[in-house]
Amino acid sequence: MTTTVAPTTNTRALLTCAAVAAPLWAVVALAQAATRDGFDLTRHPLSLLATGDLGWSQVLNFVVAGLLTTLGASGLARTLPSTWAPRLIRVNGIAMVAAGLLTMDPADGFPSGTPAGTGELSWHAYGHLAAGTTAFGTLIAACYVLARAFARTGRRGHATRSRIAGTALLLGDLWAMAGGTAGSLTLAVGAITAMLWVSYVAVELR
């Protein structure tokens, strides 16, 4: 009996990590967006919160959520009807940690007092862009892979929701990269939607 209960308990703990990661990241990031002086979510990406005197809180937010996602991917690998989705989610978690440690440069009026526009990027800002691109790309792919896996098992509602989550992030990312109006806001909505969907799947699998 011990040998059968222990793996189940361990898997549930890992799935809890996946379930907590997105809500934690979203609440901490959005709370900062609403309270940090000079921050405007229609102009500033949430990653920019990692700059300034209180930037450490967003760095920590990225690192903790990324580690939880990485651990949670192991639980998803044991329970999902997919091989590649947990692998993609694991890379997403690792990329989130890297994005937190490699911060953006102050830009476009944030932190308060920073000149408008952007200057020459530092090495760590380039690193952040690479890590962010990896995090978004793998999360988008994971949502579409999940959609295919759910469709194969007859869970068409979940398959549709997975596609919606992946598409929300894809369109938000493309709109932001194209310099669309309120691009950082649409990116934030897309990213949080996709992240929360993965968390929901983990909650259900528990």
Rank of each mutant, 00 (worst) to 15 (best):
residue 78 R to F: 04
residue 109 G to W: 10
residue 153 T to K: 14
residue 96 M to I: 06
residue 150 F to R: 15
residue 112 S to D: 08
residue 103 T to K: 13
residue 87 R to P: 01
residue 98 A to D: 00
residue 86 P to I: 08
residue 99 A to E: 09
residue 101 L to Q: 12
residue 115 P to R: 15
residue 63 V to S: 02
residue 97 V to D: 01
residue 138 T to N: 07
residue 67 L to S: 09
residue 89 I to K: 03
residue 95 A to H: 05
residue 166 G to T: 08
residue 92 N to C: 14
residue 127 G to V: 13
residue 80 L to K: 03
residue 151 A to L: 03
residue 154 G to I: 14
residue 146 L to D: 02
residue 127 G to E: 09
residue 127 G to S: 11
residue 116 A to Q: 12
residue 121 L to W: 09
residue 144 Y to D: 03
residue 125 A to I: 04
residue 74 S to T: 10
residue 136 F to N: 07
residue 97 V to G: 03
residue 161 R to A: 06
residue 119 G to K: 09
residue 87 R to K: 15
residue 149 A to K: 13
residue 96 M to T: 07
residue 74 S to Y: 10
residue 131 A to S: 15
residue 80 L to Y: 00
residue 113 G to P: 04
residue 126 Y to L: 10
residue 115 P to M: 15
residue 119 G to I: 13
residue 70 T to M: 10
residue 97 V to K: 07
residue 154 G to E: 08
residue 74 S to F: 11
residue 80 L to W: 01
residue 142 A to C: 05
residue 94 I to L: 15
residue 126 Y to R: 13
residue 67 L to Q: 05
residue 111 P to N: 14
residue 106 P to M: 10
residue 78 R to T: 03
residue 94 I to P: 01
residue 77 A to F: 02
residue 106 P to T: 15
residue 64 V to P: 00
residue 80 L to C: 02
residue 128 H to I: 01
residue 106 P to A: 13
residue 157 G to V: 15
residue 102 L to G: 04
residue 136 F to A: 14
residue 105 D to C: 14
residue 162 S to N: 09
residue 71 L to T: 04
residue 167 T to R: 09
residue 79 T to K: 12
residue 123 W to D: 11
residue 161 R to N: 06
residue 85 A to S: 07
residue 71 L to F: 14
residue 167 T to G: 10
residue 115 P to E: 15
residue 127 G to D: 12
residue 155 R to I: 06
residue 102 L to F: 12
residue 146 L to C: 04
residue 130 A to Y: 10
residue 124 H to S: 08
residue 110 F to S: 08
residue 144 Y to P: 00
residue 78 R to N: 08
residue 83 T to K: 14
residue 130 A to N: 02
residue 157 G to M: 11
residue 146 L to H: 06
residue 152 R to Q: 14
residue 77 A to L: 05
residue 105 D to Y: 13
residue 85 A to M: 00
residue 116 A to V: 09
residue 148 R to I: 05
residue 125 A to V: 03
residue 158 H to P: 00
residue 151 A to H: 13
residue 150 F to L: 00
residue 106 P to C: 14
residue 63 V to I: 13
residue 83 T to D: 10
residue 124 H to R: 15
residue 87 R to N: 07
residue 77 A to C: 03
residue 161 R to Y: 11
residue 137 G to D: 01
residue 118 T to P: 02
residue 83 T to F: 07
residue 107 A to P: 00
residue 132 G to R: 09
residue 115 P to Q: 14
residue 132 G to E: 06
residue 119 G to E: 05
residue 127 G to K: 11
residue 138 T to C: 14
residue 159 A to N: 12
residue 97 V to S: 01
residue 139 L to C: 06
residue 64 V to M: 07
